[in-house]
Amino acid sequence: MNQASSRIESTLSSAQFCRRLLRRQLVLAIRRPVEIGNPLLFFTMVVALFPLGLGPAPAQLAEFAPGVLWIIALLSNLLTSDAIFRGDFEDGSLEQLLLSPQPLYLSVLAYIGAHWLVTGLLLALVSPIFAVMLNLSTASIPALVGSLLLGTGVLSLLGCVGAALTVGLRRGGMLISLLILPLYMPVLIFGSAAVNAAVLGNPAGPYLAILAGMLCFAVALAPFAVAAGLRISIDA
């Protein structure tokens, strides 16, 4: 019985392994719903800060809304990316992952995918509510959701690079934002530009296409940097 199961384990294809890893990450996240809820709560609270700080005039809020929503999405992504590898690093399962014969590129992609599903995707899906609260024109909501769907993917990929580089450090929290924020800037620029274009009645397509291009570029390259970062952190 044991022998048979071990044979099955050894013939597990990379795609299957990747899928199981993704499933494991998602199950872990769902078992602790607070972890999923926290970024959303953070998003809500920071949205509430802006009318208090800028004044509740609807026209003014609408003007700032694209940038505000994007910056909050970026910050909530940043705050969650610190924890991507931390648990698995502390209990040693990350070390097992590095020792396993599976390609690290795909395993890392599973981690990133799980992170995106529980933060970026959810934020993009609930963002129309906050867009309405900030008086953003309804015509620009598809552009907002589209840009967040694509952009948060890039953010998760880049955030993972920072998480991998800092996972072995005791005080990773502040450092990771210093490392990643400069890398987030192009995404922020194009993401808010897409929404702004939609607000002005211009096509948001070109910006979304650039974001999609950045996503492809990041999917192709970032997992290698994450894998290298994890190896360095485990060795240290």
């Binding site: 690079v161 580089l165 400069p182 890398l183 800037m185 192009p186 940097a225 290298a228 970062g229 360095i232």
Partner: peptide, 9 residues
Amino acid sequence: VLALVGTVN
């Protein structure tokens, strides 16, 4: 690794 990622940026 960070410097190389930044080069792209």
